[in-house]
Design a protein around this nucleic acid. Structure first.
Length: 667
DNA sequence: GAGCACTGC
């Protein structure tokens, strides 16, 4: 959760002491004379907070121009700090922009925003003409949107030679970025390291302010890293000095096991030693639950934070002196042949392992214990495979098309995605009617789908809803399914939660149930937190659904689509007397026909081609109900099972009715 | 019987 960053104590140190201050003149000179600057700046160098201020002072904001800094996540804390340093009110000279919050004004000169948002701005202003400098922060993390943004900026630069691009990166990938922007430019190809460069770009290095970290490896590979991690915790605790411990694990289940193991073995500690305080940290926790890891340990206690990858870059905790690295991370990948996403524990990259170790050296010299051998470390890949090479590219391609980039194969990707990913995405977009047979964006369907902040299949449902007469309902369903599973409160409550959920159940499936939940929330629940608590619903998620729904409604109004708000009562939905629920299910079929499956005698499902066995996710109504044909919003493979989420009953005939071509090809 | 991390004019 992005707003956890709010709890990180600000580093109120004189800014003149930050390492970057010594490089101010050199940096400004490089940016002045070179269109692209790759800034190598370690954590604690001050690059994100100081450089924008230097640029503003140096006159890069004259004539109403703006310096933009894109962040992978949570621009608010950085913007807040810079506003404090500049002694201005947030939203005036310094502002930020996230999905539902535009805290900027006419006087904003430095704007922090997410890279996804800047890409969306390019839809309206393709040359991003209000910006004099665009800094892409943490570009080495290689998120899908920052990669696409860099490709777009490369194009923009050719038509706006005065634009300055700053790419902030870790050491490892700096040359790649420079080479990318240099393109065919022979000059820059010769660019060496350090502070030299060619005509297009230069690299500037700013040292960080981290303490040394002493890294330890296992002599022999271990069989069970969880067991080994716990042993290491107790070894550190009994033999090493003060300081908290951070363990990198792969997921919630592992974290819970680790915490139990620590608690179980704590009694074996000698009476007079300090106690261990195990704390969990993963994205699935609420903001309140995450807060504990930021609080100092009570007297005579040592914190042991059991975290997922969230602690690698997104969340910073002060006071960590010992890091224990399992060497694994769960990564999402997309299989273009089956169209199924997988979530599997994978060995980390060297870059990741280095970043994890660095977390031990933020307050003083620290130690990192890697639960694998040095040989194993040496055989790790240098960097994680960039998202763009392992994602469903349908949303990305739709966006690129909307930006006027028609030839996707020739688009300048930092690293090109595999052809199969592009082909699969083009096929899907064609079958949805977003692209024509020449792979051109259709109008109005394709252009509207690209503008909606929804994944393509859902966007298609929403845009075809008026013809089914269920627009208001589909707006709600689109908002609710975009939340991705945080609607119900955690499953430890079990029985009570099941009973609560049953009140909202609509037999035809999860989508209609979610619609029912939303309608109850805004009517009976009066959008109140207390009502949510009574019904085991996540108030934050429900409020977010309201925001998303409003945003989607505004899009539709802009498309001149009539949005009359005639919410259907649950009685009508449940009566089953065909009207609304059938129209909604037909509408869902018109967008999710590629996600259809048939239930087998044993309760599992098979895809239409019969090739893949799927299981209803235990959070789905269809987990313990009978259906024949269904459509679903998501399929994910974890462990050895493929789970479908948000499942709704349909009629077989509807598939052919709404996707004749798609199903003719396959039969 | 159960999901890494972010995010969208």
């Amino acid at each position: 959760m992005a707003d956890t960053d709010v709890f990180i104590p600000a580093l109120h140190k004189p800014t003149s002491l930050l390492p970057i201050a010594r490089h101010k003149d050199a940096l400004l000179y490089t940016i002045e004379t070179s269109p692209v600057t790759v800034l190598i700046g370690q954590t604690g160098s001050g690059k994100t907070t100081q450089l924008p201020q230097y640029l503003e002072q140096a006159g890069w904001c004259t004539g109403g121009k703006v310096v933009a800094v894109t962040q992978a996540s949570g621009p608010l804390p950085v913007a807040k700090r810079v506003a404090e340093e500049m002694r201005c009110q947030l939203g005036q000279e310094v502002g930020y922009c996230i999905r539902f919050e535009d805290v900027t004004s006419a006087s904003t000169r430095i704007k922090f925003l997410t890279d996804g948002l800047l890409l969306r701005e390019a839809l309206v202003d393709p040359l991003l003409s209000r910006y004099s400098v665009i800094m892409v922060d943490e570009a080495h993390e290689r998120s899908l949107s920052s990669d696409v943004l860099l490709g777009v900026l490369k194009k923009v630069r050719k038509r706006r030679p005065e634009l300055r691009i700053v790419v902030s990166s870790a050491t490892l990938q700096a040359q790649d970025f420079l080479r990318f922007f240099a393109g065919d430019d022979v000059d820059a190809e010769a660019a060496g390291g350090g502070e030299v460069g060619g005509s297009v770009g230069r690299i500037v290095s700013v040292e960080g302010r981290a303490f040394p970290v002493d890294t330890h490896y296992l002599a022999e590979p271990c069989e069970n890293y969880l067991e080994r991690a716990i042993k290491t915790v107790f070894d550190v605790h009994t033999t090493e000095g003060e300081g908290d411990i951070l363990i990198f694990l792969t997921g919630r289940e592992e974290i819970e096991t680790a915490m139990e193991m620590i608690a179980d073995r704590t009694p074996s500690l000698p009476q007079d030693t300090d106690k261990l305080l195990p704390l969990p940290l993963y994205a699935g926790l609420t903001t309140e639950q995450q807060m504990y890891v930021f609080e100092p340990a009570p007297e005579n206690h040592r914190k042991v934070i059991c975290a997922t990858n969230i602690a690698e870059a997104s969340v910073t905790i002060e006071g960590i002196v010992y890091v224990i690295d399992s060497g694994f991370v769960k990564l999402r990948a997309y299989n273009p042949t089956t169209g199924i996403e997988t979530l599997t524990a994978t060995p980390v990259s060297k870059a990741s392992a280095t970043q994890r170790a660095g977390r031990a050296g933020r307050t003083k010299a620290g130690k990192c214990y890697r639960l694998y051998t040095e040989a194993a470390f040496k055989s790790l890949p240098e960097a994680t495979v960039p998202e763009i090479q392992r994602s469903n590219l349908a949303p990305t391609i739709l966006q690129l098309k909307a930006l006027g980039i028609d030839n996707i194969a020739r688009f300048d990707f930092l690293t090109p995605p595999p052809a199969e990913l592009i082909i699969r995405a083009l096929e899907l977009l064609y079958s949805l009617g977003a692209l024509d047979e020449y792979a051109k964006l259709t109008n109005p369907l394709g252009t509207r789908m690209a503008e909606l902040a929804l994944e393509p299949m859902l966007a298609k449902c929403l845009l075809s809803a008026p013809t089914f007469g269920c627009l208001s309902e589909m707006l709600t369903i689109a908002a609710m399914t975009s939340l991705q599973g945080n609607v119900w409160f955690s499953h430890d409550i079990k029985k009570a939660e099941e009973t609560a959920r049953r009140r909202f159940t609509v037999e035809e499936g999860d989508h209609l149930t979610l619609l029912n939940v939303y309608q109850a929330f805004v009517t009976k629940g009066k959008k109140e937190a207390r009502w949510c608590q009574q019904h085991y619903l996540n108030f934050k998620s429900m409020s977010r659904a309201v925001s998303i729904r409003n945003q989607l409604r505004r899009y539709l109004e802009r498309f001149d689509i009539d949005v009359s708000e005639s919410l259907t009562g649950p009685e009508v939905l449940r009566a089953g007397g065909r009207p609304m629920q059938e129209r909604i299910r037909r509408c869902l079929t018109s967008g999710y026909f590629a996600h259809a499956a048939r239930m087998q005698a044993d309760g599992s499902f098979r895809t239409v081609d019969g090739g893949t066995v799927l299981h209803a996710h235990p959070s789905s109504l269809m987990f313990n109900r009978k259906a024949e044909w269904v459509v679903f919003t998501e399929v994910m493979e974890t462990g050895d099972k493929k789970y479908i989420r948000d499942v709704t009953k349909i009629e077989k005939g509807w598939l052919v009715e709404y996707a004749p071509e798609f199903y003719r090809v396959r039969s």
